[in-house]
Design a protein around this nucleic acid. Structure first.
Lengths: 336, 336
DNA sequence: TTGTATGCGTTATCAA
DNA sequence: TTGATAACGCATACAA
């Protein structure tokens, strides 16, 4: 014996096996495949487990079975409610299925070493990955494809997912918001949005549709993601000179929308008469503000659960759709 | 050979060792203790690592070294910004130290099987635990003490932590808010808060101090945590009959405060003349609302980093303070 | 500075 | 239905 490690007082599978007068393998089966053990021995084993307070070592189990029962979730931030909701739903669904979620925060900085983050996480040999967003450096997709691990991307809807995708079409959101405004007679439009890829797409769809419908884009204000209320107030201050006569603004998020609404009130601008506002995300802040803010809603909890379902199916070797397009809907409220 | 497992195509430490003409142990050292390897061989090994795309299996490493380099974070919810900020900061700090964070969502339901959640997480053999909040079922503390794993509790300040504690004194917050209001001449007070343990403490401190100072608690509205804007609007509707003459309200969170402010505006109540409002958390929503809302601020990002620092110190075998009391401060704004 | 032997705690596989 | 055995891929302890 060439080692002198600290004798772990922790109870192991052999201890349980000894206490129950069975082989370790039988204990393992009681835990992982109960139907392959006779009820009598299973009961005896469970008794021993309880008596000894045995907590199976999933690290050892993972090494042996080559299944870690962990999922890595790579998220730009959990501090924005837009992401917190689907990530929570995803985590809950995974927990119920017996998986644990490793949280990786990628931030919004371009200089973050995303491939490094992915590599670090792959060292844990996760059974699957959740990526929030679909705009990664090319090295990331290569890394993941090579690792041959199931991946779901969530939030975006792009043509060539790394593996699977659950999201919605941000460009189409912009298109629909423009149509919604136009349908209410608006001719003048503006945008206040973040510089993240999704907001860029929504902005592009909006601008293109505005042109198509013969409207005018009178102003555009771009801030750094993630969006806050201050960004909306700021946008209002910058865009104010261009907002008369009546203009309809698409905001990058509900936070931005609330900020614009707040600043509009301060400036005595009539909403929606002089300024119509549409947010994005349908957060509580929109529903409960006064006036209530029109917003684009998407069932983000369902999106998280769907991502979990598809990932679990793929892990189980079942088929799962490569791309799931989630619906969205504009909820008209008092700001339009 | 009694097995026929799938021949893993994955590159392992022996493959790198062969490619670099060294022993596997040398490769391990290049990765975990570079100063114990000569620069020449280290360079050769790194080259092999890059060429083969070797990603060390941390599960195997963890089993061998008995250090998982994982931390489990048990949080009621990440969907509330009050928790999202410190948990983000904690996760960032841990990532920088080479640790991964396992996310466990405990929710607010009493019926959640918290001991079960803890046991499941302990199966991963985390090197440490972060618990948000200090009000656990007794079984949880027993479980964790027995596991002999470093634990930090965050957010509360209680006399007998399981292990370590970084938080602030919620009762004292209530006391200070009452004094703050009284110092501005208020005699009539009300509370709108959640039913979670921390809000209960703040409410108790507030009520006791109000009595002590000869004021009157004219109303109290309690909702289910976590708090939202709707809870604040609701509170305003319920408390309205009791709010004349001028009353000062302590809210359970900034969301509640924003809701009350919104509903007060709808009802034409003058703020702060007829109704003074103080929130809790100092979220952006307070700073950027109009009027800006007075709130209690605590550096929650620093709290998360501090929790990470202390946990890392303890893991490294260094000493770390058992209890760290974080300061808080009332930020007077336009609602008081 | 580098290498060798061994075990970390579990599960897949085959045999009984 | 149960058991014996050999990996799983790496790092510790010790030797050279």
């Amino acid at each position: 014996m060439a080692r002198k490690r600290g004798t772990s007082a922790a109870v192991k599978i052999v201890d349980v096996a000894a206490a129950a007068n069975v082989a370790p393998m039988t204990v393992s089966r009681v835990l992982n495949a109960p139907d392959r053990v006779s009820p009598a021995t299973a009961a005896r084993v469970r008794e021993a487990i309880d008596k000894l307070g045995y907590v199976p070592n999933l690290i050892a189990g993972g090494l042996s079975s080559r299944r870690s029962r962990m999922i890595a979730a790579i998220v730009p931030t959990i501090a924005h409610p837009l992401f917190a909701a689907p990530v929570s739903a995803f985590t809950d669904a995974m927990s119920q299925a017996g998986y644990h979620v490793l949280l990786g925060l990628s931030g919004y900085q371009e200089d973050l070493d995303m491939p490094g983050l992915i590599r670090a996480v792959l060292g844990r040999r996760p059974d699957g990955l959740l990526l929030v967003g679909s705009h990664h450096p090319p090295a990331v997709a290569a890394l993941l494809r090579e690792a041959a691990v199931p991946v779901v991307e969530m939030f975006d809807f792009t043509p060539n997912p790394i593996d699977m995708l659950v999201g919605f079409d941000h460009r189409e959101v912009g298109v629909e918001v423009a149509r919604f405004f136009a349908g209410r007679g608006h001719k003048r439009f503006a945008v206040a949005r973040g510089n993240d890829a999704r907001a860029v797409e929504r902005g592009a769809g909006f601008a293109a549709t505005v042109r198509e419908l013969g409207g005018t884009l009178v102003g555009e204000w771009i801030y750094s993601a993630p969006s806050g209320i201050a960004d909306g107030r700021d946008a209002m201050r910058r865009l104010a000179p261009d907002l008369a006569p009546a203009t309809a603004v698409m905001c990058g998020s509900d936070m931005t929308a609330l900020g614009m609404l707040t600043e509009a009130r301060v400036r005595g601008l009539a909403v929606p008469e002089q300024l119509a506002i549409c947010g994005f995300g349908d957060l509580e802040v929109c529903r409960e503000s006064e006036p209530a803010i029109t917003s684009v809603t998407v069932d983000s909890a369902e999106m998280g659960r769907m991502a979990a379902r598809n990932l679990l199916a793929r892990i189980a070797g079942e088929s799962a759709p490569a791309r799931v397009l989630m619906p969205f809907r504009i909820v008209p409220r008092a700001t339009t």
